[in-house]
Design a protein around this nucleic acid. Structure first.
Lengths: 202, 202, 202, 202
DNA sequence: AATGAATGAGAGTTCATTCAT
DNA sequence: TATGAATGAACTCTCATTCAT
């Protein structure tokens, strides 16, 4: 079998399979989903799945990678730009929330199921996740340095909170296809920036 | 002669079993955890678990109920009190985050695994979850009415976001036993109230 | 524990337990019935059953013995009497069919479940069953000898057939409590004696 | 490209599996037999059995259907023919008894274990069983109408008795592979027709 | 005389995985 | 490129049985 697996046709099919796996894992969870479920979603037979993935575990890895694709990279671009803090924050939230739409359910799977990966696979992923958080943390730190943000802000805490908030909304985005993400991004950014209290009060 | 399964000894043991199940489900997920895992955590044999639960599904239900115990009730008390908005918000976040400590990992399990409950069991739970969100939403609405909160706040959005944030932090609380929750509560409340931007800027 | 098990009170209770077991075995079969089912039918707890039976197997043995009680003995009496063949046949069928009413479902259990007894227990029972058939066979042989029965009758076959017929009706008797056994006995006897063909024809 | 489970190879193997199940159920009863027993009899591993049957219950259903295959249909043919009563009776008994040989032990299983089928499966079977009895009853009724049978015959009773007798003999046929069924059929028919009493006597 | 509690063996069932075709 | 067939391990659940109380 001469390098069939490098064919672009093969890669195309494999991506389809990964997407199907993402959908199934997102709905039933990694352990709750069977290889048969994924095969069904693809319209092939159970055994045939192994033409695309060496194991169920590898399928999960592929889904996670798909979920993260461009994720950290975009974050770096945002962090490196010389926009003001507000714009960077909005870009971050926007990038994060839109991922949930574009990437099918892969990002949700990454969030919820990645800890079921084999140790080896998980290590590789971890780097990217950490990089993302650190980029965001850096943005906050710069915001403080520039005097745009309050001085007593805990940047680590703030970064984690933004990510957590985005992931919480991500769950709802995946579930509700009608949700207007543009307006959601606005609201999230505004909340993080200004809080809910009326300015007069403070 | 008290009926068997109402013995306080029995109920006591059953609670222990529920706690063990919470720990195991939190770590491995419902489908990833086996009844053997739960039994091991309890120090009994696998089959003996069925003396306390009719099925694995019932165990999950009990864990979810434990996670929600007093949850909505406390929320009602907070909502009904005549404290100012800030105090209510802090009380809510505090109640939510401390639940993650007190209740073992049950609340985390409720958040992540409840959708694997049998349909019937899930229906019963749903009410309590909805009630919680509505209480919180009411608090925000009153805040707006009283002029404490900005007029353009979307209360539904705000309530969901606060819950989402708390749950995101809850994950970390469960994972890191050293985390100082008091300070976490302060930071969360401050962020939601004031946002991160320095006042001068706005 | 000084010979409590010989108390007549104990024996009384044990008989009750055996009857309950008969009912349950008759309905669900030996393997389909659980010791819990029997205990429930008796109104006691599962473990308590072992006060009356050393094992489930012993319970089955007791039920079979109950089903056979007086069974072979009555057959001997009938065979030894000097009534004419017709009377003996009617007595046999009558004794057999009424057993299904009187003995609760024990005789049905004996017929259907005895082969699940442990080897040792089964051997003991076998004697009684064989004796019954041989007695009946003897009655037929005498009938032939006396010229009451046709000469070309195969007595072994005839005996087995009568027993089979009675057991087949026994199933229905157990199931249908309204069945009029008197008239059933008449019909069965008549059929065996005269067949169904109108006399003119032969 | 024929659908998978309709392959003749698959159907062939499934029939083999059903036969194996019949043998095992006949010997140990439905509850007493394990799926492992059936698999062993087939020469495959226990789990592999589920490639052919969705559940043990379905296996029982298949066995029952096999036991009844052509059963009612043959009865209809016999009833519809214009042979004299005697010939119809002989054909019926012959058909019934030979089924016990041909169909492996499936008919015995149908008789003894069908009540352990799930409710739904049992309903479907019931029709066929009832049809058989009614056909036979009709034969008797015609016999009476034609004057071949005695006028006071209870046709319902007679039909049930013949079926019961055949089933009783069926048990022995299954157990004893040497039994001469031709002669058995003769004896059964003669007994039902003429009874055992010598003609002079009546 | 009976029970609460536990056990361990075994059942039915599912499923990831393999492999010849 | 995909499938039919099979496997073996794991899992949930049931149950006969034991025993201290």
């Amino acid at each position: 079998m001469p390098r069939v697996r490098e064919t672009s046709r093969y890669q195309q099919q494999r991506l389809e399979a990964t997407r199907a796996a993402a959908t199934v894992f997102a709905e039933k969870g990694f352990h709750g989903a069977s290889t048969g479920d994924i095969a069904s979603a693809l319209g092939i037979k159970q055994g045939s799945l192994y033409y695309y993935f060496k194991s169920k575990d590898e399928a999960l890895l592929e889904v996670c990678l798909l979920g993260l694709r461009d994720y950290a990279a975009r974050m770096d671009v945002i962090a490196a730009s010389d926009q003001p803090f507000e714009a960077k924050l909005l870009a971050t939230i926007s990038s994060h929330l839109f991922s949930y739409r574009e990437r099918n359910e892969a990002l949700k799977v990454y969030n919820n199921e990645r800890l079921y990966l084999s140790d080896e696979h998980r290590k590789n992923l971890k780097k990217q996740g950490t990089a993302y958080r650190q980029s965001l943390e850096g943005i906050f730190e710069n915001g403080v340095k520039d005097g745009v943000l309050r001085r007593d802000i805990d940047c680590h805490f703030a970064a984690l909170t933004v990510i957590g908030m985005c992931n919480a909304w991500g769950e709802l985005i995946v579930r509700d296809h009608e949700l207007d993400i543009f307006s959601l991004v606005q609201k999230c950014t505004a909340l993080v920036l200004n809080g809910v209290r009326s300015q007069a009060d403070s």
